[in-house]
Design a protein around this nucleic acid. Structure first.
Lengths: 242, 242
DNA sequence: TTTTATCTGTACGCTAGCGTACAGACAGAC
DNA sequence: GTCTGTCTGTACGCTAGCGTACAGATAAAA
């Protein structure tokens, strides 16, 4: 579990040409990402851009009522803080650590200097942004049309892809917050998957036993997001991951 | 209804500095946008970028089953084809004309030349993209948590903002496709609004009688999208529109 | 070991929205 | 005027998911 962190663990950083990384490297700061840490709140001016290595961050929208819904999820395949280079400097969502680990961060100002050189960094970030857009769009569709059972499968797969191994530390309560449903709904869905032998779990630790089955039980949304992400960011394609 | 079309009717084009517009102008082609016209299909390589003047275009996701859901809506406040400059060249959604009118279009290649000069165009497009992202995120949340009644209000308001006047030509069947719900659900919701004196309608023509009331009946999603769009693209702020 | 907090399981009535079916209303074509 | 297709209204049983309540299980703390 305790791999020595390296910027190369983040697929975006690993994709950048050497000279770009070398310019960025002195400004990369390794930070610990404990579960529940809020990177930024809705409306906050973003100070840093984060590149997760082995952590996962959710972009979560929290409504006036307190109810929430996950908009998208970012791991070592991406970056948190696209609003910085998109020009808005803030977003209407919250970025919160969903799975503990580490990340590298850069001051927004430094990052924008590199972005504004209009080189590889710019194009890579734009492609990543499109992948993010795809994920958001698919979330919208999934929320409209699919059952909790299917959505849980999709969510587990998306999270699993961003971790090594087949375990994830996550209570049903937290998953419910992400999906924007009741905790009881997740309990039921998880129970079904357990009875089918697809997953095991106890007190916040989920182990996937039959990933193939999980994929077949998921709605099409997972596959759509995955293939589109692989298309846009070949660096994330399975055969290239480390 | 028959205003002479001018590129300035599109707020993005109207915002660009004169020299940018002058470079673009010779390549702008005025096109008719009849209801139901498909600008591109999921997976298509985009050939043009479209700037609506008085038409409205929906970005619609169509599932394997045929069910659909609107991801976002674009009018004279925006542009269709962000995937071109984001680098993906295609998207997983369909762009379809939801309200007939006109638009100016540019060949993707020409457009990218201007975008790659890294001037005003680039920054404006990125800001618009963030506004689009906000709208998608809010759609996801709204699909999860709000009733058809509320969503219909939001949808009417978003459409109305992109048209002049207080009428929109739109059957309940079409609205249902956009919202991703049954036509009967829309009939019921529209019936309620009618009984409250908020809207009138008959055979595909909706007239908003009490816009203020409509806003109060809508969920928070409309206001969030509106204020964030105004923040990101001040050119769209009410006092500046023509 | 006992206590306490957290996590998970289950139950039950309720409601929004679905699937389906059909009927009336209106506009345009013939 | 009649016909035909489109649009809208209504009804009815069904299901997924909600709100609420509570009980058992397990880990950590005392």
């Amino acid at each position: 579990m305790s791999v020595t962190p390296s910027p190369q663990q983040n697929h975006l950083l690993a994709t950048l040409p050497r000279e770009v990384v070398e310019r960025l490297l002195p400004h990369l700061e390794l930070v610990d990402m404990p579960l529940g840490m809020v990177l930024y709140e809705s409306g906050d001016t973003l100070r840093h851009v984060y590149f997760p290595t082995d952590s996962i961050v959710s972009l979560l929208y929290v409504m006036e009522s307190g109810a929430s819904a996950e908009i998208s999820v970012v791991g070592n395949d991406g970056v948190i803080g696209v609003a910085l280079f998109m020009g808005g400097e803030s977003t209407t969502s919250r970025a919160i650590v969903q799975s503990a680990g580490s990340a590298y961060r850069v001051l927004g100002k430094r990052f924008k200097e590199e972005f504004n050189r209009h080189g590889e960094m710019l194009h890579l970030m734009l492609r990543y942004s499109q992948a993010l857009i795809t994920q958001m769009a698919q979330t919208a569709v999934c929320n409209r049309h699919h059952s909790i059972d299917q959505q849980l499968c999709r969510w587990l797969l998306l999270s699993l892809d961003r971790l090594s191994g087949s375990q994830l530390a996550m209570t049903q309560e937290l998953i419910a917050n992400m999906l924007g449903v009741r905790r009881e709904g997740v309990t039921e869905a998880a129970g079904k998957l357990h009875r089918l032998g697809v997953i095991d779990y106890s007190r916040g630790l989920i182990t996937v036993r039959d990933r193939e089955r999980l994929e077949s039980l998921s709605c099409e949304c997972y596959a759509v997001v995955k293939s589109e992400t692989d298309r846009l960011l070949p660096c994330n394609a399975p055969h290239l991951t480390h």
